[in-house]
Amino acid sequence: MRTDPDLAAEAARGSETAFAELVRRHQARVRGMARRLTGSEAGGDDIAQMTFLTAWQKIGTYRGGTFSAWICTICWREFLQVRRRTRPEIEFDETAEIIPFERPSDAQDDKMDLTRALEQLSEAQRVCVVMCVAAGLSHREAAEATGWPLGTVKSHVLRGVEALRKHLAKPEVA
């Protein structure tokens, strides 16, 4: 099986087939990440699509390393752009307390336990948990993607995971 860097190199030479394979391999990770960051399936998939289109344009700049970290970094930037457009009044702050998702109340009933528990975290914790736990990035990769200090990322992951476990353990949630 061809590796991600091999496929990326082929895609950089213009192979749409190689790029389609990369999309197929990483779509679940990227869509999952975008959906959890936005709190919306449709919004998340839009961001995921923009992520892959940007990746296609910039595939020549991929210089090895973990492809998932590279694509998740693009996804994070796309999310920030959308966030700035849609919620310019709330500046992103990794020390901020809970900022709930904006969603219609009738959608709440259908939420899965995991997603609902994720919503209870602060935005910074949610970002770090989504990147490191759900998308599988290392703490260092998440720190490089977000531009936050490594210690901050580690702390948010630690607290986020702790809070997530607590919410999942609650009888009304679990």
Binding site: E16, F19, A20, V23, R24, Q27, A28, R29, R31, G32, D45, A48, Q49, F52, L53, W56, M112, L114, T115, V133, A134, G136
Partner: peptide
């Protein structure tokens, strides 16, 4: 991580991949 991965596996990749590649 396994819980999140299980949730991600439920997503159907075909329409999404087709949509992205169509735009490409």
């Amino acid at each position: 991580a396994a819980l999140f991965a299980a949730e991600d596996r439920k997503m159907d990749p075909k329409p999404f991949v087709a949509g992205v590649m169509g735009k490409v």
